[in-house]
Amino acid sequence: MIRVNDLEKSFGEFKALNGLSLHVDKGAVYGLIGPNGSGKTTLIKHLTGVMKPDKGSCEINGMPVYDNIDVKLMTGYVPDELYFFGNYSLKAMRSYLKALYPAWSDERYRTMLADFGLNENGRISRFSKGMQKQSAFLLALCTRPDVMILDEPIDGLDPIMRKKVWGYLLGDVADRQMTVLISSHNLRELEGICDCVGILSQGKLLFEGRLDELKGKAKDMSLEELFFYEMGGEL
């Protein structure tokens, strides 16, 4: 479960998050959408423990996130801008992450490696962008996190691979009640997998709700249409 209360963060004069509150239930798949500069990535960096809030709080499973190793152990993260240690292969990363995460699953690693068709001995830095993204998903899912945070996760993935990735994610949601927060601009993609959505603008949540309720209230508007509507744009 993710709970964000009255979160504020400024960068100099610019207020990136302005009293943001958000709630994601355990086992839910939450879609975070918003225009560029709305604060999505800033929020994610608070949820992954990278940034310290100026004000307010971020909690995962009832524990504050910042500088909390226990929370980080139960959190998986696939960032927008990927990063792997230079010269490292998937095998080397597996060895490293296995030592860090007690819940690491070798069985899941072997299954996903075969399914994605990746070479575990090849340097990740020499993989294509899509293969690097697959590697990031593979490594994050093998840590068996309780909460998965994804920032623009499907950029660079082909449709077949997207289907596989969503399959693994939703499988964990169904099997282990994993909580997922996805930030994406691909609204059609989110519409197919999210239970809840939150629309972020200027550091505040404009709208939050379950997708099925939303569709009932919004008279079958698509997520994309709802987004435009909330942002005051024209369809």
Binding site: T48, K72, Y83, L100
Partner: peptide, 8 residues
């Protein structure tokens, strides 16, 4: 971002 998101 990635290093500080790791369990340290």
């Amino acid at each position: 971002g990635v290093v500080h998101a790791m369990p340290f």
